[in-house]
């Protein structure tokens, strides 16, 4: 086994290969690998963030739904209360109106009866006068007997 200048040639060849790999090969492929690792890391982080956002959105949605439900219940309550109030209002208005109408009717009845009584009294008075005149056979002077006639009319009216 002889050692010759082959050592130098082989050494230089090896060195050249190593230099070419270092200069033109390695940086590109390791760069690609590291870039991909970065991309994957970013992707995973984004996925995590998305998941977290989704969870948060779910919680928020639950809150909103709960709030809406509460509000709906509240609105229904209010509506119920309000309708009760309206019914009560209507009832009281109606009863007041009824009372008023009743009063009016009573008043008008009283008025009518008073008026009727007045009419009757006059008629009765006239009848009494004409009756008396017939009985007496002469004209009664209304003026002369006004006092008597009034008393009579009042008596009739009372009766």
């Amino acid at each position: 086994m002889d050692l010759t200048v082959t050592i130098v040639i082989q050494g230089l060849a090896f060195f050249a290969v190593a230099w070419l790999v270092m200069r033109f090969g390695w940086p590109h492929i390791i760069g690609a690998i590291e870039e991909r690792q970065k991309k994957i890391a970013e992707g995973l982080a984004a996925a995590n963030k998305g998941q977290k956002d989704l969870d948060e959105a779910k919680v928020r949605a639950q809150d909103i739904i709960k709030e809406a439900r509460d509000k709906a219940v509240q609105i229904v309550d209010q509506a119920g209360k309000r309708s009760n109030e309206i019914v009560e209002d209507a009832k009281s208005t109606a009863s007041t109106e009824g009372q008023r109408l009743l009063g009016q009717a009573r008043e008008s009845i009283v008025l009518e009866s008073t008026r009727a009584r007045e009419g009757l009294r006059q008629e009765v008075g006239a009848l009494a006068v004409s009756g008396a005149a017939r009985l007496l056979g002469r004209e009664i002077d209304a003026k002369t007997h006004a006092d008597l006639l009034d008393k009579l009319a009042a008596e009739i009216a009372r009766g």
Binding site: V21, F24, G25, H28, I29, G31, A32, I33, R36, K39
Partner: peptide, 11 residues
């Protein structure tokens, strides 16, 4: 090696 490295994609 150099061909593959040069064409290497990070995708």
């Amino acid at each position: 090696f150099i061909t593959v490295s040069r064409r290497a994609t990070s995708g």
